[in-house]
Amino acid sequence: MNVQVIQGRFAEVPTADARGMDRRAFGEFIGGPHLTAQQARAHEDLPFMWWVADNALATDRRAWWLLHWLLQTNCIQTAEVFDMREPVLLVGHDEDDGIWQLIGTSDAGPDGKLGHLSHAIDEDPTLIDVLDLPRGQSAVRSAVGGPWTRQLGYPD
Rank of each mutant, 00 (worst) to 15 (best):
Q4C: 10
V5H: 11
I6Y: 03
G8Q: 06
F10D: 05
F10T: 01
A11I: 09
E12L: 04
V13C: 03
P14T: 11
P14R: 15
P14C: 08
P14Q: 11
A16F: 09
D17R: 15
A18Y: 14
G20I: 06
M21T: 14
D22K: 09
R24L: 10
R24D: 10
A25M: 14
G31K: 00
G32H: 03
H34Q: 15
H34N: 13
T36C: 02
Q38K: 14
Q38V: 11
A40F: 14
R41P: 00
R41V: 03
H43M: 01
E44M: 04
E44S: 12
E44K: 09
E44F: 02
L46K: 07
L46I: 02
W50N: 14
W51I: 04
V52G: 04
V52T: 08
L57P: 07
A58L: 13
T59W: 13
T59Y: 14
R61V: 12
R62T: 11
R62E: 02
R62M: 10
W65N: 00
W65F: 12
L66I: 13
L67F: 09
H68Q: 10
H68I: 08
H68Y: 07
H68M: 08
W69G: 08
Q72F: 08
Q72T: 14
Q72P: 00
T73P: 00
T73M: 05
N74W: 13
N74C: 12
C75R: 00
V81S: 04
V81C: 08
F82M: 06
F82D: 08
R85H: 11
R85M: 07
E86V: 01
E86S: 03
E86W: 01
P87N: 11
V88Q: 02
V88P: 03
H93C: 04
D94Y: 03
D94C: 08
D94E: 09
E95G: 08
D96L: 13
G98S: 06
G98C: 05
I99N: 10
W100G: 04
W100D: 05
Q101N: 11
I103R: 05
G104R: 08
T105C: 12
D107F: 08
D107V: 09
A108I: 07
A108M: 13
A108S: 10
G109I: 03
G109D: 15
D111W: 09
G112S: 14
K113F: 02
L114R: 15
H116F: 15
L117P: 00
S118L: 01
H119N: 12
A120L: 01
A120I: 00
D124V: 04
D124C: 10
D124H: 11
D124E: 15
T126S: 13
L127W: 05
V130E: 01
L131D: 00
L133E: 11
R135E: 11
R135H: 12
A139M: 07
A139W: 00
V140N: 00
R141S: 12
S142L: 12
A143L: 04
V144S: 09
G145D: 04
G145N: 06
P147K: 09
W148V: 01
W148Y: 07
R150C: 02
Q151C: 06
Q151Y: 06
Q151N: 09
L152E: 13
L152D: 14
L152C: 09
P155H: 05
